[in-house]
């Protein structure tokens, strides 16, 4: 029985599906949503700009809050009363997810995130997580 599940999310439709799937298949598990901020951008301005804030943690939390709000909505819609754990990581998404995965029994992740720019500059995160994760990965499409 799986009791600790990690669901990496961003603002894409696919990651919403992943969370819905996780709620459905592991109704009793403790689910943690992970959002990575400060991912690589075209001229490195995004990561730098984020880090330039007075307080790095505050700024990161501010970026992640809308994403987490959406996740809580999804949990509420699924009728779950499950407590949703949230986590914020910095930098390269795939690397951050893989580093965290050890604390969980399963990772549930969407196949891909939305934009062309992310594809070009970050690559397919799910693919890298599948290759590098120390725990089983469920890829949702």
């Amino acid at each position: 029985m799986v009791s600790r599940v990690l669901v990496p999310i961003d603002d894409s439709k696919m990651s919403e599906r992943a969370l819905e799937y996780a709620l459905e298949v592991y109704p009793d598990a403790e689910i943690t949503v992970l959002h990575v901020v400060g991912k690589p951008s075209q001229m490195w301005g995004h990561a730098t700009g984020l880090a330039l804030a007075d307080d790095l943690e505050d700024a990161a939390a501010e970026h992640a809050e809308p994403i987490f709000d959406r996740a809580r909505e999804i949990v509420a819609d699924a009728g779950g009363d499950a407590e949703l754990e949230t986590r914020i990581e910095l930098g390269n998404p795939a690397r951050a997810i893989i580093d965290r995965a050890n604390d969980y029994e399963t990772v549930v992740i969407g196949t891909h995130s939305g934009s062309v720019v992310d594809r070009v500059f970050v690559g397919n995160i799910a693919e890298k997580v599948v290759q590098g994760s120390p725990v089983p990965v469920v890829v949702v499409r």
């Binding site: 984020l50 910095l90 930098g91």
Partner: peptide, 12 residues
């Protein structure tokens, strides 16, 4: 430090 990674930079 995680915001800066040589491989990712090279990719960009």
């Amino acid at each position: 430090v995680d915001l800066f990674n040589p491989a990712t930079t090279a990719r960009v």
